[in-house]
Structure formats: structure tokens, C-alpha cells
Computed example of a mutant assay.
Amino acid sequence: MLIGLAIALVNQVGTEQLRADVARFGIWAPVIVLLLRLTSIVIPVLPGTAYSILAGGLFGFAQGLLIIVIADFIACTSNFFIAKRYGRSFVKKLVGQKFMVKVDSLGQNYLERNVFLVTGLLMTGLFDFVCYAVGLTQMEWRKFTPALVLSIAIAKPPLVALGAGVFEGGRILLGLSLLGMFILAMITAWVKRKSD
């Protein structure tokens, strides 16, 4: 729904006008989007997917992807280390009781020993919770990092491309992003089936 509202807003205002408004912020525009995305991952009750699409729409595919990759790597790593350092009670304060159930259920699905399952779950919409859940296990940073990097490399380009394609009217980019989203949906279904 949030994505639909963002697209409607851009269509109402116009892509060029929106980009001109954002350009007035200069170097701070990408920093602002990066910080918003970071915050939406560390405090996962805030919606974050829209920022990937927004980054693609405002900055184009390459720069938008760079912003999202940096934000996701820093935030997911932070979630992992916050959980490692401060434990379950602190994570519960950050995500709340309602969302702690997600963290607990993810942690109980053998995340500690299954790097492939971790990688697959990091490609879903629950990736922020997965980082906390993995941080609460005995999995080490050196095993978590490759899973995180691979998941970002696979899952983020389609979302950013979707934003760049929608706002640019690029049919090929939009088509590739939709194909990527379809592949991600298949991976998510496969991972869910494996974890059940």
C-alpha cells in the first residue's frame, strides 16, 4: 500500500519536479534516504521496502542501489551485533513484544546451523528480524557475513530497479525487476517449505 501511495505521489508531482526538489538537498539527499533506510531496519516496526524503491526512483538504479546496499549492510550488521552484545531483553525493547514472537520463531528454525536457510530468510521481508534472530544464536560473524552479502546482492537490485523502472518508465528495467521479484518469491517459498 505504501509503495502504491509513493508511486501515486510521484505521478501527481512528476518525476522531474521531485528530482529537482531532492537535488536541492545536494549531498544530503542520499544521506537522508540512507539514514531513513537504516532506521527502518534497526527499528523494524517501520516500513522499509519503500525506501529501496524510492532510492531507485530518485537517484537512478546505480546510485540508488549503492545507497541501499550500504544502508542494509550497516543496519543488518548492527542488528546482528546488538543482539549478540545486549541479548534478548534489549532486542525485545527495540522490536516490542508483538514482533519478538517473529524473532523467537525465526531463531527456533535452526538458523544457527543452516547458513543457506539464513541466506534465504535474509532475502525475505523479514530480513531485519532475521538479523536479530541470528544474533541471538551462536552463529559467528564470519558465517553471517557471507549470507548477508549474498542476500543483499540477490534481493536488493530488483527492488531498486523497480523504483528506477517505474519512475523512468523503463520497460526493460521494470520487466527485469518484476522477474527478480518473482524469483525472490520462489526462493522465499522454498525457504519456508524447508524450515517447516
Rank of each mutant, 00 (worst) to 15 (best):
P44S: 08
V22N: 09
L162A: 04
F25L: 15
S105D: 12
E140H: 12
K93W: 13
L150H: 01
N11E: 15
I67P: 03
G169Q: 07
G170W: 10
F25E: 07
G163T: 04
Y132I: 04
P44C: 09
L174S: 05
S177V: 05
M139P: 06
I27C: 10
G57N: 07
M181G: 11
L38S: 01
L176P: 03
A6L: 15
I172Q: 11
S105H: 13
Y86N: 09
P30D: 05
T39E: 08
I172C: 00
E140D: 10
R85E: 14
A20V: 09
K84G: 08
F61T: 00
L184I: 07
S89A: 14
A6T: 15
A161W: 06
A23W: 09
R113W: 13
D104F: 05
I43N: 07
I74L: 14
R85S: 15
A153V: 04
L121G: 03
G170C: 05
L126S: 11
S195D: 12
F116A: 14
F81T: 07
L18V: 12
I41F: 07
W190E: 12
S89H: 12
F73H: 05
G56I: 07
L35T: 08
T137A: 05
D72H: 10
L179W: 06
Q17F: 11
F90Y: 15
K156A: 15
V191N: 01
Q17E: 14
V42G: 00
V13E: 12
P44R: 07
L36F: 13
F144C: 02
D21F: 13
V118Q: 01
G163M: 06
G14D: 08
E16R: 11
D128Y: 00
L58W: 06
G120A: 00
L34A: 11
V103M: 06
N79L: 07
T145C: 09
G14E: 09
R171Q: 13
L184P: 05
V115H: 07
V191W: 01
R142N: 12
L35R: 01
K92N: 13
L65W: 11
A133W: 02
L2V: 10
L126N: 09
K156C: 14
I53G: 00
M186L: 15
K98G: 08
I53W: 04
K192A: 11
L136T: 04
R19F: 09
V130F: 05
T49R: 07
A161V: 02
I172E: 12
E168V: 01
S52T: 08
G87A: 04
I41N: 10
F73C: 01
Y51T: 08
T15K: 11
T124A: 01
M123N: 02
F144Q: 03
G163V: 05
K84D: 08
A155K: 06
F59C: 06
I172R: 09
T188H: 13
G96N: 05
S40L: 07
W28P: 03
S40H: 07
V160T: 05
L159F: 13
Q97G: 12
L66M: 13
I154Y: 04
V166L: 15
P47R: 06
G125V: 10
N79R: 01
A23H: 09
